[in-house]
Amino acid sequence: MTSFSPFSYRLQLLRSLHEQLGKLIESDSLPEFNENPLTDKLGQLLPDLEQRDEEALYAAQQLISQLIANFPQLTPLVSRDLLWLLGGDCLHWMPDAEVEQYQQLEELYQDALVSNHEFDWVASRKALFEGKGKLH
């Protein structure tokens, strides 16, 4: 059975982003972001996301899209994996070629689930994206 959980990994990435944004505010390195409620809203969403609340998932998609649209300089803080795992409007921030690679990665994950094999998302992504081709 695969040990990878998209749900758990998405939560991990959201918690990490929340922490990074909090540190950014503490450091006062981007004053125009300090008064923005996005970090607080993300923190408030985390418990609902842990409960697999679909409305919270949609709100998280919107929040990440707002973050990227309003603070493009913070885009490097947002994991590409997070954009993919949130889906929805977050996919608009990914070029088509990258979406295609993530679709291939998702297929590999689904194959591992069906065949009851272990799956390492990060290692598979790295191999797939660096190799620019499909893994078998």
Rank of each mutant, 00 (worst) to 15 (best):
T2E: 08
S3P: 02
S3L: 05
S3N: 06
F4A: 09
S5I: 11
P6G: 06
L11W: 12
Q12T: 09
L13D: 07
L13I: 05
L14H: 10
R15W: 14
S16G: 13
H18A: 15
H18Q: 13
H18L: 10
E19S: 06
Q20S: 13
L21C: 11
G22C: 06
K23H: 07
K23G: 01
E26C: 03
D28S: 11
D28K: 15
F33P: 07
L38G: 01
D40W: 01
L45F: 13
L45T: 02
L45R: 05
L46C: 00
L49Y: 06
E50N: 04
E50S: 02
E50L: 11
E55Q: 14
A56H: 03
Y58H: 04
Y58C: 10
A59M: 10
A60C: 05
A60T: 09
Q62Y: 03
Q62D: 01
Q62P: 00
I64M: 01
I64P: 08
S65K: 08
L67I: 15
L67C: 09
I68H: 10
N70M: 07
N70D: 15
P72Y: 09
P72N: 03
P72I: 02
Q73W: 00
L74P: 05
S79F: 08
R80F: 07
D81K: 14
L83A: 14
L86V: 07
D89H: 02
D89K: 09
L91M: 03
H92Y: 06
L105D: 10
L105K: 04
E107N: 11
E107Y: 14
Y109H: 08
V114N: 03
S115E: 14
N116V: 11
F119T: 12
F119G: 14
W121E: 05
A123M: 14
S124R: 01
K126R: 06
L128E: 01
L128H: 07
F129E: 09
F129Y: 10
F129D: 00
K134N: 13
K134T: 13
L135K: 04
L135C: 15
L135R: 15
